[in-house]
Design a protein around this nucleic acid. Sequence first.
DNA 1: CGCTAATCTAGAACAAGTTTCAGACTTGAT
DNA 2: ATCAAGTCTGAAACTTGTTCTAGATTAGCG
Lengths: 206, 206
Amino acid sequence: MPAEASTSRPASPSLTERQEARRRRILHASAQLASRGGFDAVQMREVAESSQVALGTLYRYFPSKVHLLVATMQDQLEHMHGTLRKKPPTGDTAAERVAETLMRAFRALQREPHLADAMVRALTFADRSVSPEVDQVSRQTTAIILDAMGLADPTAEQLSAVRVIEHTWHSALVTWLSGRASIAQVKIDIETVCRLIDLTTPGPRR
Amino acid sequence: MPAEASTSRPASPSLTERQEARRRRILHASAQLASRGGFDAVQMREVAESSQVALGTLYRYFPSKVHLLVATMQDQLEHMHGTLRKKPPTGDTAAERVAETLMRAFRALQREPHLADAMVRALTFADRSVSPEVDQVSRQTTAIILDAMGLADPTAEQLSAVRVIEHTWHSALVTWLSGRASIAQVKIDIETVCRLIDLTTPGPRR
DNA sequence: CGCTAATCTAGAACAAGTTTCAGACTTGAT
DNA sequence: ATCAAGTCTGAAACTTGTTCTAGATTAGCG
């Protein structure tokens, strides 16, 4: 236990440090369980045990399983945005770059299909009580797409196109995860919807 | 076993009649409960009671709550397709007609938002075990859109556009139901994605 | 240091989806 | 009419998300 608490920089985590650590443990356990068996494998009791936290505490940090999984998704998305930033897409047109970026993200998801399942199912199943968190995920996704487009100041029309791209992205993932669409099919859908960008971007073609 | 039409005494309808009737009672109860309080209000015990069927029987007919709600959606979709057929859309272009049709469907859903909630949540939450049923819903939706386009023989490109339109349709509904998008926003998204049709349909263009 | 409020823990309890089972009823065939 | 197979019923049991409670710890403060 900390003998002195004032002057020295705390080596042992005190205060909110500890809570931050708990939160990280919980998110880690969540992602780990999700990676194993998807949405169903993330059982609140197991998450609590894995992260060495009482069930009640888990619920204090994340008021429902869906909240937990959406937070897990936020976490992963942040990581992915960082990764994507390091190697920007190389396509000539905005449409190509967006498609390339989404396909890169898709490939990442394919590496952990169960985790993808858990996150996406939670996202689309979320009810109003999770709206703020889901909205945050949506904003992050929008940011990634706008990054790929390379637009500083998108028009309303372009924002609409981005919204539709996000719709397609989410729904295509759902159909892929439930085994109703192949990877190739998802690719086609992404490429198809990205053509909308050309419609709204006065550029060199057509 | 063509049997008799049982004109005299329908007191004890025999054979599969009875089962068909049970099935209809169950679907009716499901829709009714869903209309009241959405996904959460459809409780299997209540559905069983409402439709005068034992819980075990309910599960024999529909192996899970999601199966039940997806079947409910099939039912409603069929009804809607019939209704839409009676008054075909009037727009000049295929894109306009599809947007008009989807907006008409959307208005119908707005009249029973709770029912819409139950059906759409079930649809996107469905896992692989429900794939055949979900696929059936998807085919029905595709048929409605193709009807609106007025195409006998769509190209592969056009089918891709239709797929993307469906993605957008489902995902836009999800965002509307969870309160993250307004009705106006959904309208814009539908209109935006329908422009994809123009891209793939050589014809009178703006 | 000692106090008070907030937080955490272990565990029971509750809710709704799902499964199971023994017994009653239907059905189809002989 | 009778039998075997399949179906339906009512009720209990099981699972997992969620809530609640009482007591232990911890944190911030005078």
